[in-house]
């Protein structure tokens, strides 16, 4: 293990993780008395600026975990703090606001609204967030420029290639400058070349804007590029692998604490 050079001075506050999950359980009722437990007490901490990946076979609970991270669903038990907000204390009605402001979704099959053009698609989260039209327009154009799609502003999704669609979807995910970007198999429907382009955009967002990204993937090669790989199996995180290319410094910079702790699942303290 590398030697840690910039250990923070005593008394410096430890940074709170953006995603802070403690003992998350998720069970589905498939008719009493049967109960199907999908997640068996997952604890996870993801820090600001981290780019992590979650891998695992289908049925391992990846999607359920992602739904909980993305507050599309609530855990049956356990605590979840998203960017310091206790999700269990948020009313159902306000969850949509949390999704709108704090989370940017990128899906495998892009899920753009087919009847509206690229610009309108990017504007959509801002519209739901109540941003005024002029500001919305400006920001959407800026985001499209960021993903190098500024010349496709008025195109409908079906006039675009898969890679182009995914870039627009990423621009849309960035619309409200969310705390995390949640990407579910973003390259799954793309060939390796365009998949590469999309991954480059994620890396760029991570490096240049310090975005926290959670990538769910089957592709181990892509997962290897991220800071940390979580492997799931049967509703548990069975392993955590820290990218060997990351220096302890990097991790220290992000988390503000000893990487040795993180192997235990990253308790908040």
């Amino acid at each position: 293990m590398d030697e840690i050079k910039n250990k923070p001075a005593a008394g410096q506050p430890i940074r709170r993780p953006v995603i802070d999950m403690r003992g998350i359980f998720k069970a589905f009722y498939i008719g009493t008395p049967n109960q199907l437990e999908i997640l068996h007490g997952i604890s996870l901490a993801v820090f600001e600026g981290e780019f992590i990946s979650v891998v695992g076979a289908s049925g391992s609970g990846k999607s359920t975990l992602m739904n909980i991270i993305g507050v599309l669903d609530r855990p049956s038990a356990g605590e979840y703090y998203l960017d310091g907000v206790d999700i269990s204390k948020i009313a159902d009605k306000e969850l949509s606001g949390i999704r709108n402001k704090k989370i940017g979704f990128v899906f495998q099959n892009f899920n753009l609204i087919s009847r509206t053009n690229a610009l309108k698609n990017v504007e959509l989260p801002m519209l739901y967030g109540g941003m005024p039209k002029k500001q919305r327009d400006e920001r959407a154009k800026q985001l499209l420029k960021m993903v190098e799609m500024e010349d496709r502003t008025n195109h409908l999704p079906n006039e675009l290639s898969g890679g182009q669609k995914q870039r627009i979807a990423i621009a849309r995910a960035m619309a409200n400058d969310p705390s995390i970007i949640l990407a579910d198999e973003p390259t799954g429907a793309l060939d390796s070349y365009t998949g590469r382009l999309v991954m480059d955009i994620f890396h760029k967002l991570n490096k240049e804007q310090g975005k926290t990204i959670v990538l769910i993937t089957h592709n181990n090669e892509l997962a290897e590029e991220t800071d940390r790989i979580l492997t799931m199996k049967d509703g548990n995180i069975i392993s955590q692998k820290i990218n060997p290319k990351r220096t302890m410094d990097d991790i220290y910079r992000m988390t503000g604490r000893d990487p040795a702790d993180m192997k235990k699942g990253g308790e908040g303290k």
Binding site: L72, N100, F107, I113, Y128
Partner: peptide
């Protein structure tokens, strides 16, 4: 589409 809209923060 409804699912997407909700994920994007539609109430």
């Amino acid at each position: 589409e409804i699912g997407v809209r909700k994920a994007l923060g539609a109430t």
